[in-house]
Design a protein around this nucleic acid. Structure first.
Length: 554
RNA sequence: GGUCCUAUGGAGAAGCGGCUUAACUCAUUGCCCUCUCAAGGCAACAUUCACGGGUUCGAAUCCCGUUAGGAUCACCA
């Protein structure tokens, strides 16, 4: 009968390298004590998921704050699910959120000495390790078809025992090497399975940076490590790559905890030191029935990072939100820092919640308003332009009419200690500032005006005529005093208290007068401070809008 | 179903055996300020920490059980 080594040579005749060669090719990293090597390992199967952004944010932070290395590895071993171009897309979106790798796959290129960083280009590396496993008898070719597998599963389900390919059910385990050779030479398709020595009755102790210590059943599944397409499965690629790329801390989603025993056994069998693990809680969402479920790209728009970009949210708002779910002390910290320098926050696994948070759009909006309020008018302009060029042609056209005018609009009540906080995303900009532009203004007044019904047209006309005399060269407070005076002269109380004390004596209050003016100038009942609105609109525009309205009311 | 993880208001959470009449933030509601809105200021919002039992002088905090929710059981990652 042929030996394991002969079998290994039969399967991988071209593999000449050894595991030792690989160890030499990828030496231990020369980093200072405590420096962590982390990695973000997405699959190129679509746009960046909010949960992936969360994971990558934490990987990035941990590496940065320990003076380590953060790299990106593309896990493209599932060729069927791969979407062309999504790897590049992923990287460019990460960049928008300030997450830039020190090393690894960069979208259009690669950087670093531990590559290749794309798994499909690492096939030769996996083969070396798999060949070694074959040689030591810890891996074997499996010729079972999916039909065979289904039959085994069916049997197990009937007998109510643990399903899977393990122990006595692992048929191909019991083939001898000559039989294996014969099948291979006959051209039978096969995969390679890892030969587990575990038993699911026994438990192993594992340590997790966020969950602490816990026990979990040993792996006893003879998992596939080498698929018939010549590529490894996730489990095997993870172990090889994180070993040879010298990752110190694997940070990934909680859904990986159940497969941890597989990884632990693989590391042990290969005689490699396993990295530290941090399994992050998954971001959740409440469904219609009130059940929690994983935020899903298919069902939830906020699961795709692109949603926030397309809607014109400041990228920082999502990052801030993600940091609040990452570390419970972040909110107090960022408040104390007046919403600045969030990248200086020190993250710690200890302060991480164990439960998956429900995604809270309201909180993202809150952060977005705070961030918008901090921008200068120039920043607003730059960002609005960049956003609209990419996602919103209508807004772009409006901004380009007169960038200075746009900045003046956006600057209303901005340069002060408590600036306005009424913007959260660029996509809704036109609906709030459109009235500053004649075409949008006219379109909105065409839809009707909402003057208070208790005033008849004559009164409104009279008041408007009077208000034409308002002097915008006055200071804000004096200007408003002038409006009060005008209001009084037209029979309106200068404030609510005086009106309430003697309602019969007045037609209304100065508030009513201001409302008339506001509706005429903006077409809306709500707007920023009228004094500033008028200053930005300019005297001529204000007068013509008032005159037009008076004519309309005739 | 097996295994694992988790459990404090509408949401994120602090809390680590007495300083807790449960911090803080968002949301909501009310009041104040005010030309409206946004902001800002001030309040209100869990008599109770999923439930049941224990340990203890004392439990949201420790132990046991139950329940509920989530994850996972592929030649997908």
């Amino acid at each position: 009968m042929i030996s394991n080594i002969e079998l290994a040579n039969l399967i991988f005749p071209d593999v000449k390298e050894t595991v030792e060669d690989l160890e030499k090719r990828y030496p231990l990293r020369n980093l200072k004590e405590g420096a962590e090597v982390t990695r973000f390992a997405p699959s190129p199967t679509g746009f960046l998921h909010t949960g992936s952004l969360f994971t990558s944010l934490i990987c990035h932070k941990v590496a940065k704050q320990t003076g380590g290395v953060f790299y990106v590895r593309l896990e493209d071993t599932d060729t069927k699910r791969e979407i062309e171009g999504s790897g590049e897309q992923l990287l460019s979106q990460l960049k928008i959120f300030g997450i830039t790798p020190d090393e690894g796959y960069l979208g259009d290129s690669e950087k670093g000495n531990y590559g290749p960083y794309v798994q499909s280009k690492r096939a030769d590396i996996y083969k070396v390790v798999i060949k070694y496993l074959l040689e030591i008898g810890r891996a074997y070719p499996c010729f079972c078809s999916s039909d065979d597998l289904a039959k085994i599963r069916e049997k197990q389900e009937k007998a109510k025992i643990l399903p899977g390919y393990y122990g006595q059910f692992a048929k191909c385990r019991f083939l001898n090497n000559d039989e294996r050779k014969a099948k291979i030479e006959a051209g039978e398709p096969f995969v390679i399975r890892f030969k587990s020595s575990g038993n699911h009755i026994r438990k192993i102790k594992v340590h997790d940076l966020v969950h602490g210590d816990f026990e979990i059943a040993q792996n006893d599944q003879d998992i596939v490590i080498y698929k018939s397409d010549g590529l490894p499965t996730y489990h095997f690629a993870h172990v090889c790559d994180d070993h040879f790329m010298r990752t110190t801390t694997v940070i990934r989603g909680e859904e990986w905890i159940p497969s941890l025993p597989i990884h632990v056994e693989l590391f042990e069998t290969l005689g490699w030191k396993a990295p530290n693990y941090a399994h992050l809680p998954v971001i959740m969402k409440l469904d219609e029935q009130g059940h929690k479920r994983k935020l899903s790209k298919r069902l939830d728009s906020e699961a795709a990072v692109s949603y926030f970009l397309e809607d014109g949210y400041p990228p920082e708002s999502l990052i801030m939100y993600l940091l609040t779910i990452a570390n419970s002390n972040f909110e107090e910290w960022i408040l104390a820092n007046k919403f600045s320098n969030m990248y200086d926050f020190t993250f710690s696994f200890e302060k991480m919640s164990l439960e998956g948070a429900l995604f809270d759009m309201g909180k993202v909006n809150f952060f977005a308003r705070e961030i918008f309020a901090k921008y200068t008018k120039e920043e607003i302009y730059e960002k609005a332009k960049a956003y609209s060029e990419k996602y919103n042609k209508e807004l772009l056209e409006v901004i380009n009419r007169d960038p200075k005018y746009f900045m003046e609009i956006m600057n209303i009540e901005r340069e002060r200690e408590n600036p306005r906080k009424d913007f959260e995303k660029f996509s809704s900009l036109i609906s709030s500032i459109g009235f500053f532009y004649d075409d949008y203004y006219e379109a909105s007044i065409k839809e009707g005006l909402s003057f208070n019904e208790k005033f008849d047209k004559e009164i409104i006309k009279q008041v408007l005529n009077k208000l034409k005399g308002l002097d915008l060269s006055l200071e804000e407070q004096e200007w408003f005093n002038q409006m009060k005076t005008f209001a009084e002269e037209e029979g309106f109380a200068p404030n609510g208290k005086i009106f309430k004390a003697n309602p019969e004596a007045y037609k209304g209050t100065v508030g009513d007068v201001a409302e008339m003016l506001r509706i005429v100038l903006t077409g809306k009942k709500n707007s920023p401070n009228l004094y500033y609105v008028m200053k930005v609109l300019g005297k001529d525009t204000c007068l013509s809008r008032i005159d037009n309205m008076i004519n309309k009311l005739l």
